[in-house]
Amino acid sequence: MSSSETADRLDVSADRETLYRDGIVGRKGAFSREWADAMREDIMTAFWSAIQRQGGAVGRGPRRWYVEIHPQDLRGFVDLVTHPWVTAMCEAVLGPDYQIVEVGFDTPFQGAKNQPWHRDFPSPEDTWRDHRITSLAFNLTGVDVTPEMGPFEIAPGTQWDDGRSWNHEMFPSVESWGRFAERAVRKYPSMGDISCRSALTMHRGTQHGSPIARPVLVLGVDAPGAGHAALHDMMVTPDYFAALPQSVKHHLVCRVVDELVPVVQKHDIEGLVMGAD
């Protein structure tokens, strides 16, 4: 499908239904392998820069890091946020005034361990009580994922779990992990695939035995009022902002600055630092 196609012409009602049922839905071959390879180059360049500065790369467990970047650090950023499936899913789930609040990437290397089952932030009342999804995470892999690469594991349907009694409202007790393990599905995307999920759906990265790193891009999008923009600080330069399509400007939550400075990350998921094992 051409990126020139608009959200109006793309019916994602079935994908929205799958998202509400499972907490995750995917689209195969949304981007070319060449596009995905350029994405991988950009995020690994950003990783080696971030790992050398204080607060640049935040630990998500042994041999696993998360890095936030600015839109213009990613050559394909506009392609991503104007892709017809991405825009259609955002509008169908979050409404026409959705907000792009985060771009970053998670990178496990050989030696990464199983993470504890978790969600990425506490569930808002809109979700645990009213069963309404107010934020989305889009993920794109930088490699063809194999079983040795510590694939992403998710427990479908758990986006509606209350979670208010959990540690930090994100980490259920070890005694309850069996329920998530029973539902668990491991994902093996290929370069060019994209997924859309609620970050409240219980998930974890798994043990990574391959010498090949598994970088995955994360695009965070909110419904108005969801509040996650306060945890991030995307910046763009004036010339970059001026060149953006008006549709992107409408949705992008960012500061326009004369000079980009590295993101100092504000969203540190403390419970992931040590890993599960």
Rank of each mutant, 00 (worst) to 15 (best):
M1P: 05
D15P: 00
H131C: 10
A223Q: 13
V174K: 12
G111D: 13
A50T: 05
P156R: 08
V273D: 01
Y188D: 06
T127P: 00
G55F: 12
H203T: 02
E102H: 12
T18D: 05
D120Y: 09
A181S: 14
M44E: 15
V261S: 12
V263R: 04
A276E: 12
W177M: 04
A38E: 15
F105S: 01
A230D: 13
V221F: 09
G157A: 00
A155T: 02
D73T: 09
I69S: 09
M235Y: 01
R179H: 13
G220W: 01
P215M: 03
V78L: 05
P124E: 06
S13H: 11
V86S: 01
V218F: 06
G163I: 01
R75E: 15
W177L: 08
R255Q: 15
V264G: 04
I154W: 02
T237I: 05
G95H: 10
E259W: 00
P116C: 10
Q72T: 04
E125I: 13
W35A: 14
P124H: 07
I69Y: 08
D79H: 06
K187A: 04
F121V: 01
R164M: 05
G59P: 15
I51S: 10
D106I: 08
D144S: 03
T134R: 14
T134P: 01
H70Y: 12
D193K: 01
R16N: 05
M235V: 08
L219N: 03
S190D: 07
A155K: 02
C196E: 08
G178M: 11
S32P: 04
C196V: 15
R33F: 00
A88W: 01
P147I: 08
P84N: 09
F77C: 02
L272V: 07
V253I: 14
S13D: 12
D277T: 08
G192R: 05
M235R: 14
P84G: 10
V101K: 02
R132E: 14
A229H: 12
E34Q: 13
P224G: 07
T82Q: 11
D15I: 03
S165F: 03
L217P: 00
W48I: 08
R53W: 00
R27H: 11
V256M: 04
P96K: 14
P224L: 09
R204E: 02
W35S: 10
T146V: 05
S13F: 04
R40D: 04
L74M: 14
E153W: 02
G104T: 02
G142P: 06
A57I: 01
V145Y: 04
L136R: 02
D130S: 10
T45E: 13
D37V: 11
A92Y: 07
V264E: 11
V253M: 11
A50V: 03
V145F: 00
